[in-house]
Amino acid sequence: MATANFQARIERINRAHKGLAPARKNAPIRALRSQPIPMSARRAGRRRFPIFEHIQPMAMGSVLGCIAAVVLTGLTSENSPWGPGTDLNEMLFLPALAGLALAPILMLASLFLASKRPGFALFSLSYLSGLVITMLI
């Protein structure tokens, strides 16, 4: 009995797709969609470069890298408020070195995660470049 009901249902579905199903009065019209629309089809109207999708991680990485570099540079400068011999120097020394050590760790992690998470790879590259460029200035 279950097989007969299943076969009857398949026949009704096939007739409905071919347009052979009888029209019912006062029946609600429903759109059937077998699969969700992919994101690439939704954005078909806009033409964007793929790099613009990851602007936020790149900006965040470069800003955090610049902040870490300014703190590291200030630790050795005599004129800075957190320079050698101050209480802030002792308080910021270990977090600043952790920020410096974080850059190669992020780059190594992004080697493994770049295909799955390209935003993370761009973040770590921006962090390293922001850190190095600011320290060179």
Rank of each mutant, 00 (worst) to 15 (best):
L20V: 03
L108Y: 09
A44Q: 05
I55F: 15
E90D: 14
S62M: 07
P22N: 12
P104F: 03
K18F: 13
L64I: 05
F112W: 10
A4V: 15
P57V: 01
K18Q: 15
A2P: 01
P81Q: 09
Q35D: 06
I10E: 02
I29E: 10
E11A: 15
L125K: 00
A121H: 04
P84G: 13
N89G: 09
S129G: 05
L88C: 11
R12G: 10
H54M: 04
I105V: 08
G130I: 01
M107P: 00
S110M: 04
L32G: 11
N89L: 04
E78F: 04
P95V: 13
F120G: 01
L106W: 02
T76N: 15
I133R: 07
L32Q: 11
A114W: 03
R42E: 10
Q56Y: 14
K116R: 08
A68K: 01
M60V: 02
I37K: 15
T76I: 11
L106H: 01
A109D: 02
T76A: 15
A16W: 11
A114P: 00
R42Y: 14
A41P: 00
F120L: 12
N79C: 01
N79V: 06
P57A: 02
M39K: 15
V63L: 14
A96V: 04
F6N: 13
A96P: 00
L88I: 11
G85S: 07
N5R: 11
G65M: 01
G19E: 07
S77W: 08
M60G: 00
A121T: 06
G19L: 11
A59N: 02
T134N: 05
K25L: 03
Q35I: 11
E78C: 07
L72V: 13
A96G: 06
C66L: 09
I133D: 06
A96H: 00
T86P: 12
F123R: 00
T134G: 02
T134Y: 04
I105P: 00
I133C: 13
F49E: 13
T3H: 08
M91D: 06
A8G: 10
H17F: 05
M135N: 14
N79K: 05
A2W: 05
G119K: 01
A68H: 04
F52W: 15
E11C: 12
L92W: 05
M91P: 05
I29K: 12
P50K: 09
